[in-house]
């Protein structure tokens, strides 16, 4: 059962990341990887909301499965490497600093919102 919940969440999260990335990347001309940034921040917010409030089954489905597959560290670091290699060093630094600070902020906001509603 637990495995199925993780699989089901991931089968939604991973395609959602792919389609969001496509949609976002087709709407701007900058070299900044806004698509990956958007899914990572969204995933941090949702996981923050889910953490602490939901049952363990919901956490497996939405947390481990959906948010885990919606967000990515591999594409984040590969895109950072490509920015650095192609002379866009400032964008690379901005991507790292922005993703980490905004991601942590989004996770905290999610936890705080859940606490405010359920607390």
């Amino acid at each position: 059962m637990n495995w199925l919940l993780v699989v089901a969440g991931a089968m939604i999260g991973a395609p959602l990341r792919y389609l969001t990335d496509r949609a976002v990347q087709s709407r701007h001309d900058s070299v900044f990887p806004w698509g990956t940034f958007a899914v990572n921040i969204t995933g941090c917010l949702i996981l923050g909301l889910v953490t602490g409030a939901a049952s363990s089954h919901v956490q497996l489905l939405l947390g481990t499965g959906l948010c885990g597959a919606l967000t990515t560290y591999s594409t984040f670091s590969y895109e950072t490497l490509r920015l650095a290699e192609t002379g866009a060093g400032l964008y690379a630094v901005a991507n790292v600093a922005g993703s980490v600070t905004v991601g942590l902020g989004a996770a905290s906001t999610g936890v705080w919102l859940t606490g405010a509603v359920w607390g």
Partner: peptide
Amino acid sequence: LGGFTTFSTYAV
């Protein structure tokens, strides 16, 4: 690889 790695768990 995208499904394997995670940014959200890292932050939380």
